[in-house]
Amino acid sequence: MANSTTTADPAPPGNLRWQKNRLAIAPWLFVAPALIFFSIYVIIPIFQSIALSFYEWNGLYDGEGQSTAKWVGLDNYRKLLFDDERFYISLKNNVIWLVLYMLAVPLGLAIALFLNQTVTGIRFYKSMFFFPFVISQVVVGLIYGWFYNPDYGVVGSLWKWAFCEETINIMGNVTTKCSTKPPDILGDEDWATYGIIFAGLWPQVAYCMILYLTGLNNVSPEQIEAGRLDGAKGWKMLRHIILPQLAPATFLAIVVTVIGALRSFDMIAIMTRGGPFGSSNVLAYYMYETAISEYGDRYGYGSAIATVLFLIMLVYISYFLWRMYRDEKDNS
């Protein structure tokens, strides 16, 4: 690095110790406000939740302001792992989310390649394709909830158009006859999760697309030229010359997609509330449902679910931190 070539310190020696002390205290003064705030609301609660997962508690306090929590040891985990079908349904759905959500990465790359041109108006197209990411997931959930609606939605309308016949009798009453009933995607135990994931992919693909567009912008033109001279074209060019240079974008796309998949909550809350019969539940929503929805105030049991989800996420967090640590060491 360039800064290793600084000249000898011209400050007088008496000043040096003071300067050293000042340099030792200063970083703490700068970091302290953020650190204290972050600890109160993020770091400490993580440990409190883990501790709480060994208790049974309904969130109440007795007359003296003491918590009414009761120590139950590993009981919550025992119930969770050996006696809770809903937990396994949620876990299975989390896996489905993780796998299918990954489609956002190649789909985002495909759209980015499609849009990486310089024709007039392309900037407009790029921002419009990115549009779904800016909208709240609540709104996306509502849009698709209506989209899938068998009576009022787009799916229902298309179905009527394709499979139904309208007849008007002598009295002028309209009757509709359909050869098959329109599918109620979100009301079907087998399809609800896939319906929600499909909706979730919409903004996620947009996110991955923008990551790849930025990556493509920075692909070295010399290497592409060199590749062309070597006769690389199309798929070969993409695989051997472009993709390696897009590795940082791919890494980031995978990280945000994994986190997005494990955090999926909003759309489930809006579209199905985990139903029908818990079939579209995921750990994030199941935890919420257990702890503070109308189904009960099982704070301890909810915390146990949260701890499991946290441990799953911790695998990814550790990997991400390890990569950052490696890069830091390379840079210094």
Partner: peptide, 30 residues
């Protein structure tokens, strides 16, 4: 504070902020 000073805790503190940023909301909820 974390970028300019090369103190011993600079990197651990930085990683603490990153890690906290990625945790699932549910572990903080209660």
């Amino acid at each position: 504070g974390l970028a300019i000073y090369n103190f011993k805790f600079a990197l651990p503190l930085f990683f603490l902020f990153i890690a906290g940023n990625f945790v699932p909301f549910q572990i903080l909820m209660v």
